[in-house]
C-alpha cells in the first residue's frame, strides 16, 4: 500500500513535469522555459549558494508567521468554537480578514510597521490565520453531541471533554485548516517579498524576470512549491503521530 501510493505520487509528478517539458519546447510563450532548463538553473543556484542565502531571508517571515498563525489560530478557533459570546465578538474579524484584498492592505501595513520583518510576518498571518481559526471553530462546534453526552455520563470533567472528545474529534478538520493555512502562508511570504521589499526568493523572482532570465525565475518558483509540499508532508506526519486514529479508513486495499 505504502509503495503503491508512493508510485502514484511519482507517476503524477512525472506526468506534470513531462507536460511542462513539452509545453516549454513548443514553446507556448517565449517567457516559458522547459522543465530541464529550469532544473539546470535551480542546480546552478544551489551550487553557487544563492538559493540558500535567499531562503535564509524568506524563511524568517514564513516560519514565524506560520508558527504564530498555527498556535494562535488553533487556540482562537477552540475558544470561538466553545463560546458563543466569543464567537460573536471575534469571528467577524476573521471572516473580514479572509475576504479582504491583501494587496490593498499592504500599503497600510507598510505605513504602520515599515518595510521590515514585522510587516512581512503580518502578511503571512493575514493569509494563513483566518482559515485556521474558522476551520477550528467550525469543527469544535460540530462535535457530535452524542459522544459529548457519552463522556459526561461516564463522569468526564469539562477538561476531559475538551482534550479527549472535542480536540480529537475536531482534529481532522483542524489539520485540513492548517494545511490550507500553510499553503496560504507561503503565498503570503512570496507576496510580501514581491510587494514590500524584494528580498529572498521574491528577489530572485523579480530580478530574474527583469533581466529576462526565465529559467531562474521558474526555478525559484519551483523551489518554493517544493518547499511547500515538504512542509505539508511534515504536517501530515505530525497529524499522524498526534492523532493516530485519524489515518484510519483512507487506505482501503
Amino acid at each position: 500500500m505504502q509503495n503503491r501510493s508512493l508510485f502514484l505520487k511519482l507517476l503524477s509528478a512525472a506526468i506534470v513535469f513531462g507536460a511542462w517539458e513539452i509545453a516549454g519546447r513548443i514553446p507556448i510563450s517565449y517567457a516559458f522555459p522547459t522543465f530541464l532548463e529550469s532544473m539546470t538553473a535551480l542546480a546552478q543556484m544551489t551550487f553557487d549558494g544563492t538559493i540558500f542565502v535567499a531562503y535564509a531571508e524568506t524563511l524568517k517571515p514564513l516560519v514565524l508567521g506560520i508558527a504564530i498563525s498555527g498556535i494562535v489560530g488553533v487556540a482562537m478557533g477552540l475558544w470561538i468554537g466553545l463560546s458563543a459570546r466569543f464567537e460573536w465578538l471575534f469571528a467577524p474579524i476573521f471572516v473580514v480578514m479572509q475576504a479582504a484584498p491583501l494587496a490593498a492592505l499592504i500599503p497600510i501595513l507598510v505605513m504602520v510597521y515599515g518595510i521590515g520583518l514585522t510587516s512581512k510576518v503580518f502578511v503571512v498571518c493575514i493569509m494563513a490565520m483566518p482559515v485556521i481559526v474558522l476551520n477550528t471553530a467550525g469543527a469544535v462546534r460540530n462535535t457530535p453531541a452524542s459522544i459529548k453526552d457519552m463522556a459526561k455520563s461516564f463522569l468526564a470533567s469539562d477538561r476531559d471533554v475538551l482534550t479527549k472528545i472535542i480536540i480529537p474529534a475536531a482534529s481532522p478538520i483542524i489539520f485540513s485548516g492548517l494545511r490550507l493555512g500553510v499553503s496560504a502562508g507561503f503565498i503570503g511570504a512570496i507576496l510580501s517579498e514581491l510587494k514590500i521589499t524584494p528580498t529572498g526568493v521574491g528577489d530572485i523572482i523579480s530580478y530574474s524576470r527583469s533581466i529576462a532570465d526565465y529559467p531562474s525565475m521558474y526555478a525559484a518558483i519551483f523551489s518554493i512549491i517544493l518547499l511547500a509540499v515538504v512542509f505539508l508532508n511534515l504536517l501530515e506526519l505530525l497529524e499522524n503521530t498526534l492523532f493516530e486514529g485519524n489515518n484510519r479508513g483512507y487506505v482501503s486495499d
Binding site: D149, M150, L155, D160, K164
Partner: peptide, 26 residues
C-alpha cells in the same frame, strides 16, 4: 451507566480503548 442508541463510540479509538474509556475518565 448509559448505553446509547447510536453507540456513541470514539471513532479514533480501538475497541479496547473504547471499552476502557469509562474507567479512563475515572
Amino acid at each position: 451507566a448509559f448505553v446509547f442508541q447510536d453507540f456513541a463510540l470514539l471513532p479514533w479509538a480501538n475497541v479496547l480503548r473504547n471499552v476502557a474509556f469509562g474507567l479512563e475518565l475515572r
